[in-house]
Design a protein around this nucleic acid. Sequence first.
DNA 1: GTCTATAGTACGATAGAC
DNA 2: GTCTATCGTACTATAGAC
Lengths: 196, 196
Amino acid sequence: MENNNKQKILNAAIILFQDKGYYGTGLNEILRKSDCPKGSLYYYFPNGKEQLALESIEMTKNFVDGMIRRNLEKIDDPAESMKTFVREMAENVYVDNDDLSSFQSNRKISINLIALETSKTNDNIRKACEGAYSTFEKAYFDKLVENGFDDDKAKEVSKTIESLIEGAILMSTVKKDDTYILNVADIIYDLIKKSS
Amino acid sequence: MENNNKQKILNAAIILFQDKGYYGTGLNEILRKSDCPKGSLYYYFPNGKEQLALESIEMTKNFVDGMIRRNLEKIDDPAESMKTFVREMAENVYVDNDDLSSFQSNRKISINLIALETSKTNDNIRKACEGAYSTFEKAYFDKLVENGFDDDKAKEVSKTIESLIEGAILMSTVKKDDTYILNVADIIYDLIKKSS
DNA sequence: GTCTATAGTACGATAGAC
DNA sequence: GTCTATCGTACTATAGAC
């Protein structure tokens, strides 16, 4: 497999950047976790650590976007589907899985740490994070428009939903308490019902 | 002044940890910004970088707690006072002030970055951040109880308020867009009105 | 293409002069 | 108490063998 090493490095980087951050994670640590030599890293990522971060964010963005859309289409009513989707997130908050393969199924995925780290120090990475957040908002936006919301209202509500979710992930991560996510699920339900 | 250097180091550390993070900020950078020699740092903070972070968080906690309480007591109605307070936060989101003295007046203050960085790597610092968030929640809790909320409802609502505010700060920081904060001000208003 | 050895720099921390 | 010089380590990145 030609790019097996590339994927192994990416998988390790995604987990480490998420848990320990961009500046808290060393390239040596990524290589140790992925069991690849340093030569592979600079062969597949000639622009080094920054490129590795950019591709990690891109992959995370696509993965989460798919996950959101798959969940939201399970239930027609937008308020119900959002509430159910957010509540299921709470079940995965405590999953502290280091296994490289399982992060695709039930691992909590978040770019909040690397986004904050680079908001004032690396505008390329910051913009990539901004794009990811906008992609998630677009998934909520599409669900709302499909259900009769006009564009302006859907835009406002989807931005608010994204903000509520990321705040709840932040708090539940730091305080190790999933009630923040459960509370926000209800807030989002009410917000959509009230706006429709 | 005996501990003038200590305060200068703390002020520089608070700003740098906030903007560049715990792992993204070097002690040499803190000393350069504070114009102090390395000897001072280890004299006042014998436990090094971790102690510096713990005292930075403690000082931030007390400063923000006072700011919240001073703002909330300006208006009696809890929903109105929270909404006004949060809306005023939006005005300071873009302030990118490096001046060491002015951060006490109008600088945006947040521990979100260091909290996420240490949530899986340093439990001492993580616990200090957890305590700071709980202190802010207590300020919201007290305002609600003063206005007739029972303890259980006030606890739930104050936790949700804290989560909403931190999420909005996160999003507005990364996307450089203060509408997230303005939207959340309205959500909090509705939440308090609906719960009272 | 794949990998190792290493350069060059910045890090956190300390020893010891004054 | 205050400060400087420096230690040992880890970092990102590169050069060059195979």
